[in-house]
Design a protein around this nucleic acid. Structure first.
Length: 698
DNA sequence: TCCGGTGCCT
């Protein structure tokens, strides 16, 4: 500060001596060059104003550059200079326009531009691109197009810098055809022209067109740079084109291109989207520099692949390395918690959000609602939802789907009406929530009405999922013939899910003959899926036809059907433990099986009969011992020995809960006085005091 | 002046 002051004083003294002569301009320029603060600059300018001789173009230009373009500058001051000084030239205007275009509103920028025109001056290739850029960023279509016309009129449209910005403007406006037309007319294109257009197609979702243009660019002997590679890699990710992705990676290596943060992140993302997580990890490890986006690419890539445990362990590593997570990280981690039912970690993230004053709105709020709902805390979900200042269609849908999964159809429907009252337009996913709510609670007429309204009032084309919901709704309610007719009259092709829903209804209502017929449909559509066989086997068992049940099992084995192993997750102390049927790999296996023995003997003593083994599960087959070790029972036993009395147990299953486990779990909840919350493939079951929230309707 | 990562689903 003192130094600055003494320099200024010194300079002030010199100026007084020398101010009468234009010979002193170089000295003033040198002083301006070494000037370090805005206040010092203003003092120098004050001296300059006192003597007209010093008001040379380059002196004014330097003052403008410092105040308009430097990060410590003062744009308002620059504008005042413009007002105070006469004889501004084009370069002066260029400087101010550049400053305003990058830091101020479009209106303010254009007011300078208009003054320039009023003074008979036109922008050139130094300022026009910045004006175009300002329009691009403000999405000011008409102003941008006016500039385009103007550029042609003043003959500025041949400049490649101007043209590249025009191409980008049309790209951002979503007018790809206009951008492409301009591109075609350009006599000269550089790598930026090509990349801008390619990126336009890539971002608009036309990945194939982006790749085609990239090949055309190669044919035109244009060499790709890091940015081009990044853009094309993102198109490979969108298409899942691992081969082209590898070619690009090879290209980067051969040309010894700099694997900068963008190329590295795009490579990580590409490998994950193409299912090659090994290569993704390798690129990530070898990256010379990483940022939070690199971590996010890896974490959300793993989430996309369904490897939620890997995503969470990566998040832990990120914290060990003290990388601060951002919004995207938090959304990806919450998403993993939702899928794993990792309630404790989810709550921890919520606290983290509050502690760091991160707003629980938008993406994060929606992800929190979804997390709480899927971790079984529907009331917490509602609390977060109600606390959100801005709720969009995603927020409402997440909450409606949450209520539906918990069997709270009335709340789901009243929230749906509240959403309509707020003027938020439901989308097709909202209706999946609404229809599945009706289905889980047997509200047939409501469901039918909403299905019709979605077409009539909201102009939404029902998708296969909606038809699936309707078949489920009708089938569960016992309207099996109507459900079958409904499938036959569907305007779109049916799939295994739709017929599977009907087969499930046959199981609920014990319809053996119909089941046999429907199974054939399911097998035609999904020959490799075990679901149909399992349901049919259960139908035979319930109908006291064990030999037919065995026959279906054998058939399944000879058809080499892929089996989805049943698994159950339970989180204890923030760690998610996974169990499979008959699993003996857990470090507490002995205690777990001892607990199971205790449960079984207590239950048998209480009921006085052997356990209900009517609905046996397939793929177990090793006898009574394994029958009692379905994955969720192992998880429950582990939960009982690992947590204190009264702690609710939260289990997440990847399949539907079988009726045997359902009745056992009800009894356990009463016997051990524990709330047990089970999320199966379809919905939640809250077991408490011997009853389940689904009222045995599932 | 061109570039990378995010949510609701039978």
């Amino acid at each position: 500060m003192d130094l600055c002051y003494s320099l200024t004083t010194q300079f002030g003294g010199r100026t007084r001596e020398l101010c009468s002569s234009s010979q002193d301009v170089p000295l003033v320029l040198r002083r301006l060059e070494s000037c370090e603060s805005m206040s010092e600059l203003k003092r120098i300018h004050a001296r300059v104003i006192r003597t007209r001789a010093l008001q040379a173009d380059n002196v004014i230009g330097k003052i403008l550059r410092s105040s308009a373009l430097s990060s410590t500058g003062d744009l308002d001051y620059a504008r005042d200079v413009l007002t105070a000084v006469e004889g501004f030239n084009r370069c002066h205007y260029n400087t101010i326009i550049r400053g305003f275009a990058s830091k101020r509103s479009l209106e303010e920028t254009f007011s300078i531009y208009c003054r320039m025109l009023e003074n008979g001056l036109y922008p050139d290739n130094f300022s026009l691109p910045f004006l175009i850029k300002a329009c691009t960023e403000s999405l000011a279509r008409s102003a941008g197009k006016y500039l385009h016309v103007h550029a042609i009129k003043i003959g500025m449209d041949s400049d490649i810098y101007v043209k590249n910005n025009l191409v980008r403007m049309y790209v951002v406006f979503g007018e790809l055809d206009a951008a492409h037309e301009l591109f075609n007319k350009m006599p000269l294109r550089d790598i930026i022209t090509w990349t801008t257009l390619i990126s336009g197609y890539a971002k608009a979702g036309y990945a194939r067109e982006a790749i085609r243009l990239f090949q055309e660019m190669g044919d035109a002997n244009m060499v790709a740079d890091e940015v081009t590679v990044t853009v094309v890699l993102s198109s490979c990710s969108a298409l899942g084109d691992l081969n082209l992705g590898k070619v690009l990676h090879g290209y980067v290596k051969i040309n010894r291109m700099n694997v900068d943060i963008f190329v590295g992140n795009a490579l990580v993302n590409m490998y994950l989207k193409c299912g090659d997580s090994g290569s993704a990890y390798q690129v990530f490890r070898e990256m010379p520099k990483r940022n939070v986006v690199s971590w996010n690419s890896l974490i959300s890539g793993l989430v996309d692949q369904g490897d939620f445990k890997a995503a969470l362990s990566l998040f832990r590593r990120m914290q060990q390395e003290q990388i601060k997570p951002d919004d995207v990280t938090i959304v990806a981690v919450l998403n993993s918690c939702s899928n794993l039912g990792a309630h404790e970690l989810g709550k921890w993230i919520h606290v983290y959000i509050q502690r760091n004053s991160i707003k629980a709105d938008g993406f994060i709020g929606n992800a929190l609602v979804d997390m709480y709902a899927k971790c079984g805390s529907i009331n917490q979900a509602l609390q977060v939802f109600q606390g959100m200042a801005c709720k969009d269609v995603y927020s409402y849908t997440a909450m409606i789907v949450g209520f539906a999964m918990h069997g709270q159809a009335k709340k789901a429907l009243s929230l749906f009406h509240e959403m309509l009252k707020e003027g938020i337009r439901p989308d097709s996913v909202t209706f999946i929530g609404v229809l599945s709510a009706c289905s889980h609670s047997g509200l047939v007429d409501e469901g039918r009405r909403h299905f019709q309204e979605m077409v009539k009032l909201y102009d939404l084309e029902p998708q296969i999922q909606h038809y699936g919901c309707m078949v489920d709704l009708l089938g569960r309610a016992g309207l099996l013939e109507e459900a079958e007719e409904f499938i036959k009259h569907m305007p779109i092709e049916s799939d295994g899910f739709v017929w599977g829903a009907l087969l499930g209804a046959c199981r609920i209502h014990g319809k053996v003959d119909m089941g046999e017929r429907i199974l054939q449909k399911v097998l035609e559509l999904e020959p490799e899926d075990e679901g149909g066989y399992v349901l049919m086997s259960n139908i035979y068992s319930s109908a006291n036809r064990p030999w037919d049940s065995v026959k279906v099992r054998k058939q399944m084995k000879t058809q080499k059907v892929r089996k989805m192993p049943g698994s159950s997750l339970i989180e204890v102390d923030g760690i998610v433990h996974e169990f499979r049927a008959g699993d003996e790999s857990h470090c507490k296996t002995i205690e777990i099986y001892m607990m199971l023995e205790e449960i079984i003997s207590l239950l048998e003593a209480e009921s006085g009969v052997m356990l209900d083994t009517k609905t046996t599960s397939l793929g177990v087959g090793k006898g009574e011992h394994l029958l009692c070790s379905h994955s969720e029972r192992l998880a429950i036993a582990f939960g009982l020995i690992s947590t204190g009395h009264g702690t609710p147990l939260r289990i997440v299953k990847n399949l539907r809960v079988c009726s045997d486990c359902h009745s056992v779990t009800k009894k356990i909840s009463k016997l051990y006085n524990r709330e047990i919350i089970v999320r199966d493939r379809n919905r939640f079951h809250h077991f408490n005091g011997g009853v389940c929230s689904c009222m045995d309707f599932w």
